[in-house]
C-alpha cells in the first residue's frame, strides 16, 4: 500500500472514530471537542487529495469559527455540562437507518467507483481563485449575499424582543424607558401578579 493511501486510511480511521464519539459522547463538551478532531481529519483528507486551499479553509472556518460558535451555543443554552443521557427513544431506528445507509452508500461506491483511481495532483489557491473569480463569479457573489442575509437573520432571531427576558436595571436610563413606555394612568398593576417579562425566563 502506497503512502497516500495509508495517509487517507489514517484520516478515515481517526475521523470515523472521532465522529462516532461525537454522536455517542455523554458529555456535550466532549462531543464538541471530538468534532474538532473529526473536522481536522476531514481537512487532512483534503490535503491528501491535493485541495490545499480547501483544507486550510476548512480548518479556519470549521475548526476555528464554527466550533467556537457551537461552544458558545452550549454555554448560552446552559447545556448540562457533565455526563448524562443525550439520546431520545428513536435511538434504535436511527442506528438501523444509519447502518443501512452506510451499507447502501458503500455498496454503491464500490459498484460505481471500485476500480477508479485518482491521479494525485495539487491545486493551489491561485488556480482555485482564478476559476472562482472568472467562471464562478456569479454564484460566488450570491454566496456572499446569502452570508449577509443569514447574518441579519441570525441577529433578528437571537435578538431579545422588547419585554422579553430579564428586565433592564433601573438606573440612569429610567427616564428614557419611562418616556418610551408611558405608565398606565388608571390601571395599576396587581401586586404579586405575574410579570410577563420575567415569566418566560424563570420557568
Amino acid at each position: 500500500m502506497a503512502a497516500p493511501e495509508l495517509f487517507m486510511l489514517s484520516a478515515l480511521v481517526v475521523g470515523g472514530a472521532a465522529s462516532l464519539l461525537v454522536v455517542t459522547a455523554r458529555n456535550v463538551v466532549h462531543a464538541a471537542l471530538f468534532l474538532v478532531v473529526a473536522l481536522v481529519s476531514v481537512a487532512a483528507s483534503f490535503l491528501w487529495l491535493g485541495a490545499e486551499f480547501l483544507a486550510w479553509a476548512q480548518v479556519l472556518v470549521y475548526v476555528g469559527a464554527v466550533i467556537v460558535l457551537i461552544l458558545f451555543g452550549l454555554m448560552l443554552t446552559r447545556a448540562p455540562i457533565g455526563p448524562m443521557a443525550q439520546h431520545n427513544e428513536n435511538r434504535k431506528l436511527a442506528a438501523i437507518v444509519a447502518v443501512a445507509l452506510f451499507a447502501l452508500l458503500t455498496g454503491l461506491n464500490v459498484a460505481s467507483f471500485g476500480g477508479e483511481t485518482i491521479e494525485l495532483r495539487t491545486t493551489g489557491a491561485g488556480q482555485l481563485g482564478e476559476v472562482l473569480y472568472l467562471q464562478w463569479a456569479f454564484p460566488f457573489v450570491v454566496l456572499g449575499f446569502l452570508l449577509t442575509v443569514s447574518l441579519i437573520g441570525a441577529l433578528v432571531l437571537a435578538r431579545r424582543e422588547e419585554g422579553e427576558g430579564p428586565l433592564p436595571d433601573p438606573g440612569p436610563h429610567e427616564e428614557i424607558a419611562a418616556a418610551r413606555e408611558p405608565a398606565p394612568t388608571d390601571a395599576t398593576p396587581i401586586p404579586g401578579g405575574p410579570t410577563p417579562g420575567r415569566e418566560i425566563g424563570s420557568r
Binding site: 428513536n90 431506528l93 436511527a94 437507518v97 443501512a100 445507509l101 447502501l104
Partner: peptide, 8 residues
C-alpha cells in the same frame, strides 16, 4: 428518520 428510510 422516516425520510431517510424512504431515501434508502
Amino acid at each position: 428518520g422516516a425520510m431517510f428510510v424512504g431515501v434508502v
